[in-house]
Design a protein around this nucleic acid. Sequence first.
DNA 1: CGAATAATTGATCTTAGTCAACTGCTGTGG
DNA 2: CCACAGCAGTTGACTAAGATCAATTATTCG
Lengths: 227, 227
Amino acid sequence: MAGDLRAIHSHVHAWRTGIFSDLDGAQIAQIREHEIVNDYAKNCVVFSESQYPKGVFYIHSGKVKIYAVGNEGKEQIIHIAREGEVIGFRAMFSGETYKVSAATLEASSIGFIDRNAFSQLIDDHKPLRDAVIRELAKELGDKALFITTLAQKSVRERLAYSLLLLEDIYRDGPINLSREDLANFVGTATETLIRLLRELKEDGLIHIQTRKLTILDRDKLKRLAGA
Amino acid sequence: MAGDLRAIHSHVHAWRTGIFSDLDGAQIAQIREHEIVNDYAKNCVVFSESQYPKGVFYIHSGKVKIYAVGNEGKEQIIHIAREGEVIGFRAMFSGETYKVSAATLEASSIGFIDRNAFSQLIDDHKPLRDAVIRELAKELGDKALFITTLAQKSVRERLAYSLLLLEDIYRDGPINLSREDLANFVGTATETLIRLLRELKEDGLIHIQTRKLTILDRDKLKRLAGA
DNA sequence: CGAATAATTGATCTTAGTCAACTGCTGTGG
DNA sequence: CCACAGCAGTTGACTAAGATCAATTATTCG
């Protein structure tokens, strides 16, 4: 019973974030009609580069990495999506294939909404449409910052910046990523990442328990990431 | 008189690119009613980071760099816009301040369209709305590639890739940028950029005439830019 | 309990950034 | 029209950040 309550709570919460946040109950019910929910294990591909998108994905629970693969096979993680986020609509709107892939970082429950249904919903509901445009615009602003950070900052600064981003994404628990994924998010080699993590630990900025990272001194990290 | 003809021609052409490309004559006329055109000299700021957007800018002629300034004052050029492009709508839709600045790279003629007028146009014209969403989505895909390139490729590869992008932007003449701007586009130091340019010249891939760069061997550049 | 996979460490090497000096344009006023 | 100031471009020497390679130790999972 307690389990059910938690499930319901997280469900309600999820629909209150991201681009669906402005919709009322009736509209959400309408979306639900077109939604097929699937459970994904850890490390499952949700969609893959160069496919044509057939719809969008709504994350009910779990975490999904959005990444591009460079031509030496190295992943660059562009974004980590959490519950409440809709993913995969970029390509749907551009009319192109996916330029990125998506894979679960942990067991996740993800709904699929057919592209026609979603297009229809967007045409019919101005708030949803505005939310989609706002979301696209916001992400584009985020990417400008990401590009600048990548181009101008040292790996150490980028790591600090990334940890702060990740703390928000993993807001209800410790950051939980493989060293490789973390390195691919920061944009560095795994070995370099490990060395820098150790430095941060020795300086008392973070706590490390194998895969689980906790931030201890947010202010110092911010200073390290910025200026 | 010949001057007038050229002006008209370039004008007509400009409206045929970018997000306005799907509009018919009547719709363009309607936009024109709300447009104020200004001439900008070289190196003029069009809009600036942390301002609140009051509308969007339509480039009739000229080139505009869109850039972010890192906290050591170094510019990172995110995009170079050419005639036909609408700039500054990202921030307008996100409801935030500009996250980037825009400045002319050469003398340019740029129209301003008030935010209310533009919003109205978007709500009224589904094709324009779709074009805006498509454009935002497309740019987001481009940024994913840009991020991956920046994170995984050497400066040499990035330079090759950048030159190919720039060739398309400067499609009607040689690439014409200061060494500093080019370096800030590639994401490297000016000195490094100069050394690599010389190598490309010595290998016969490009031709250099002070500020003007021409690509001689597109295929080799593509190979250099990476698979 | 191993086998497989992930994490860590050390040593080495390369790339690209920084600093400093110098050259060569460009445009402006005498 | 030329000189010169100021800025853009170029070059060299040096340095350091970070990648790569190779080996070793933890973890995890069947």
